[in-house]
Amino acid sequence: MTTSSAPTTSRGDRTPPTGLALWWKNNRKLIVPPILGIGGFLLFWQLSASLGLTKLAGPLSLFTEERTRELLFYPFFDRGGLDKGLFLHSMSSLSRVALGYTLAAIVGIAAGIAVGLNKGLDRAFDPLFQFLRMVAPLAWVPIALVLFQNNQPAAIFVIFIISIWPILINTAEGVRQIPQDYRNVALVLQMSSGRFFTKVLIPSALLYIFTGLRISIGLAWLAIIAAEIVMPGTPGIGFFIWDAYQNSYVSDIVLGVVWIGAIGLILDRLMAWLQQRISPGQ
């Protein structure tokens, strides 16, 4: 066996990849599998729709159905009433989410801190929180309607009540998890409670709070669809889907679902980015 001659002969054949080739070499393992996965899924869906295995329109119907193609390419039109582009529907939904979610964040963080700091409060309310958080979004709708007698505030309430629990529970945990060392530092320095709050408590619990916020934004988005579907007559992406279903525009439903998924993903990424920005060093 001779091994001495091997390196000299093989070295000349391979030129090291540069530029795009290098990028492709390094990243292909990250790019190829998702393309194959998603592509395969779409292909399967399209085939099963084309072969008539299911009544659900295939992905290509987004382009083949004229109505749907119009909705897809012109999301900004507004013909008054409920006849709007998808972007405008989405904005209506999002504004509702923003309101409910902001309320949930304010109340949830405040209550979470209170519960996290006070063992008595924690013991008093924890069972209630654990119980309420298990109630499904749709179950809240009738309660909200009875409470508010009006679609708009009821929808916001549903979002609020769904998204508050992860925020509250995570914040409380974050406060409970403040290391004894940080508390000792505050104790030894005799920090006022206000300074302790801003200098130690909030920064220390921030990571937990953001985890709660990130889980909640997803839930809030899920809740709005549910709320709008059962509360028709208000513009919003949920209503759009329900309306399409009533009119048997199956490809419109598919388009609506794609929008929902895309917006949900964007919201989640946005929170992740915020989390990165705001709490470095941990």
Binding site: D181, N184, V185, Q190, V200, P203
Partner: peptide
């Protein structure tokens, strides 16, 4: 009766605030 900065403690695990 209570801790105070006149009796400053250096802890074993440093106890620095990591975000500062």
């Amino acid at each position: 009766k209570r801790p105070g900065p006149d009796k400053m403690v250096v802890f074993q695990n440093y106890s620095l605030l990591p975000w500062l």
